[in-house]
């Protein structure tokens, strides 16, 4: 079997990019309790410069952030050839944005606050389809 497009086969790393610290902490706590490794980043730039970028198996990405927005980071990652499964999380409901990020390959679009089940289903599918068997 070839290497996954999305990172090393053994990666269970979920990266969280959100400019709200408490949201990041809560998500990471939840992800760790679900058995994933979690890393959080306060901005798109921080994530792009991180050594964990390469290991990331799934990305939870906020839409509206000061500085670089979520969709903008998605564009830049695609341009870099980083096509790991991306789930958008937003507190700012906007159908047009959902449509465009899904077109660009997002596997989910969750509105804050979302249910745990909705999140776990998406993450599990990300790792089931693209991650290690």
């Amino acid at each position: 079997m070839s290497l996954s497009l999305y990172g090393p086969r053994n990666s269970r790393l979920v990266s969280v990019v959100d400019d709200d610290e408490s949201v990041r902490r809560g998500l990471c706590n939840l992800l760790r309790s679900l058995g994933y490794e979690a890393r959080d980043f306060a901005s798109g730039q921080a994530f792009l410069q991180s050594p964990h970028l390469a290991r990331t198996g799934c990305l939870l990405l906020d839409v509206v952030m000061s500085g670089m927005s979520g969709p903008e980071l998605q564009r830049q990652l695609r341009a870099l050839g980083k096509n790991f499964p991306t789930i958008f999380i937003t507190a700012y409901v906007d159908a047009a944005t959902e449509e465009s990020v899904r077109q660009a390959g997002a596997i989910g679009f969750l509105c804050k606050p979302f249910s745990e089940d909705a999140l776990t289903v998406l993450i599990d599918s990300a790792f089931a389809e693209h991650g290690p068997a």
Partner: peptide, 15 residues
Amino acid sequence: VNQPLTAIVTNAGAS
């Protein structure tokens, strides 16, 4: 309002 709510819900689930 949704930001802190999200933090609450996720932390509660995790705990």
